[in-house]
Amino acid sequence: MIAASHLTRRFGARAVVDDISLDVAPGEIVALLGPNGAGKTTTLRMIAGLIRPDAGTVAIAGVEMTAVAGSQLRGRVGFLTEAPGLWDRLTVRENLEIYAGLYGVAHPRPVVDRLLDRLELAAHAAVRSAELSKGMKQKVALARALVHDPPILLLDEPTAGLDPEITKSVRDLLEERRAAGCALLVSTHNLDEAERLSDRVAVIRQRLLAFDRPDILRRRLSGGRIRIRVAGDASRYLHAARTFDRGASADGSHLALQLADPETLVPAVVRALVAAGADIIETQLERPALEDVYLHFVNAGVPQQPS
């Protein structure tokens, strides 16, 4: 649904986005992770057709984003900008109805009514935007991005600064859109949110550092590290463990091994240890948090090829 290929954008001599390629399929949420200034907003703006890449292309549903096709393609995208950007003197309903008109919605009123109900904004429909809290403004901005029922959503930090209750309702809505077949690209600093929501994660820092499913990225970082707790002194079974990993170590009742493919090798390791007389109490595959994965890639700064 979204295909960005070799996107590059410079401001002066500085490359803010450098050769980033990613794709988002229908019914998929991709989280765009990166530190401040990593190029997340610039990437979203290029995909939304708001700014031009210096190199590379964006295709929406197979149609390349060009100056000519831009107007039509922007109609297929819902873009939540970093700032809510509501017209302060207009009410919530007026903001949404006018955007419905701008997106060519034939009968805005029932569409806006449904959105107001779904986002629990109906009680605020007649309130001027200037009088809303930050969280409410963000919800209205999200409603604005959804007002034309777009098949593609680009969301720049949709839950930044929101309280847990509103955050949960926003996440529920995003999952609902995914279930409806929408392609979502979500920029976020919230690793927990990325972990919960996303099907794939793109870590960027000017360049694409990693792009894969969260579990695959974790495995890539942990490299199949397992810890086995045995009854008694683990060093007695070290020789059996080292037939699988020469670097295996023992610490009290724990054995630690690094396996190339833990999913297939762990049963064999367990059998070998049992054959060596070990009573196995617990086997644990180490799973680094997404935060560790993120920090690893961002700090290493080395682009990784997707698996």
Partner: peptide, 9 residues
């Protein structure tokens, strides 16, 4: 308010 406006068709 310009960016969301320019993001429309």
């Amino acid at each position: 308010t310009l960016e969301p406006l320019l993001a429309t068709p």
